[in-house]
């Protein structure tokens, strides 16, 4: 098990110089795609952010005005805050539940049939998940509230209450993704030698103890990898908000993706949307670098 960046063998340009034409040929789609859909947008995105472009009239250069506006826009800061809550709640619960389910899978020797049942929500698009949970959690006819009412607990409008809505969305997406996360953890657990557990059992260690002293430390590299990948995905929360709450109630679920989308494509304020996207990019870039450093740190720990 090595979720690390494997090194390709030394790249001696002198040997087989005939590789260059082949490489160029094989890389044509990727190079073209990178140029058009990554490099060019990077340049264009920054450029648009310095204009007042609205899709309809020609763009006019306005310098850093969009950025100045952004720093005093309470909705922008609210969007960052709401997104942060979402990411922390979603990633935190998804990692813990995913790991828990994976351990359960291993301890109970669960078959692939049961595993695929747990995976089902992950195969369903966010849009559909939003619609189904909107119904399940509805304050009037939703099953969850019917059950809460039946057992005498208080009912809630989970998506419609501004104190609960963002947590609801975070946990709904945890529900959708936890089966997938669990399978990734499970794959990691299976690479741990059973000898370790047997030795621990001989020494009288409880299952709980071997989890903390064997499973968790051995899973550190894969945990870091899952964390990085899920975190990048988690920042992109849009679909559920768009279908289930439309950013509301009030601004309670107006996450950064949704706010940028609305500014750019509904209010046609492309320049302002682009400026926010630049700031978001800077934030994600910083986060990823920090996480990659953490990933490297764990690598050296294990090797």
């Amino acid at each position: 098990m090595k979720p690390t960046l494997m090194k390709a063998p030394p790249n001696r340009a002198t040997w087989r110089s005939s590789d260059v034409p082949t490489a160029l040929l094989y890389l044509t789609p990727a190079l073209l795609g990178f140029a058009v859909f990554y490099a060019w947008p990077l340049f264009r995105g920054v450029q648009i952010s310095l204009t007042d472009w609205n899709l309809l009239s020609p763009a006019e250069w306005i310098g850093a005005a969009n950025y100045q506006k952004l720093f005093t826009d309470p909705l922008f800061w609210n969007a960052l805050k709401v997104t942060a809550i979402y990411v922390v709640v979603n990633i935190g619960s998804q990692m813990i539940l995913g790991l828990g389910i994976a351990v359960l899978m291993q301890r109970l020797r669960i078959g692939t049939g049961t595993q695929s049942a747990i995976l089902l929500p992950w195969l369903i698009p966010n849009v559909t998940v939003a619609i189904v949970t909107l119904f399940m959690l509805d304050p009037n006819v939703g099953f969850v509230n019917e059950v809460l009412d039946y057992i005498g607990a208080s009912t809630h409008s989970f998506y419609g209450n501004s104190d609960l809505a963002i947590y609801t969305i975070a946990l709904v997406n945890t529900w959708r993704n936890m089966g997938y996360t669990a399978l990734l953890f499970y794959a990691g657990i299976q690479t741990i030698s059973p000898d370790l557990y047997e030795a621990a059992a001989l020494d009288g260690a409880s299952g709980w103890r071997s989890f903390w002293s064997i499973t968790l430390p051995m899973l550190r590299p894969i945990t870091a990898l899952i964390l990085v990948v899920s975190m990048i995905g988690s920042f992109q929360i849009f679909d559920t908000v768009s279908v289930a709450t439309d950013g509301g109630p009030g601004n309670a679920t107006r996450v950064i993706y949704f706010y940028i989308y609305q500014k750019s494509f509904e209010e046609l304020n492309m320049g302002y949307g682009a400026a926010m996207a630049v700031v978001l990019f800077a934030l994600i870039f910083t986060f990823s670098l920090l996480q990659l450093r953490a990933l490297r740190a764990t690598e050296s720990d294990v090797n």
Partner: peptide, 21 residues
């Protein structure tokens, strides 16, 4: 490495220029 770093660009960021294109 350059290709890989493309993963860090949030899709909403490229979406504006891509839409224009």
């Amino acid at each position: 490495t350059v290709f890989l770093s493309g993963m860090m660009i949030p899709p909403i960021f490229s979406m504006l220029p891509n839409f224009a294109l």
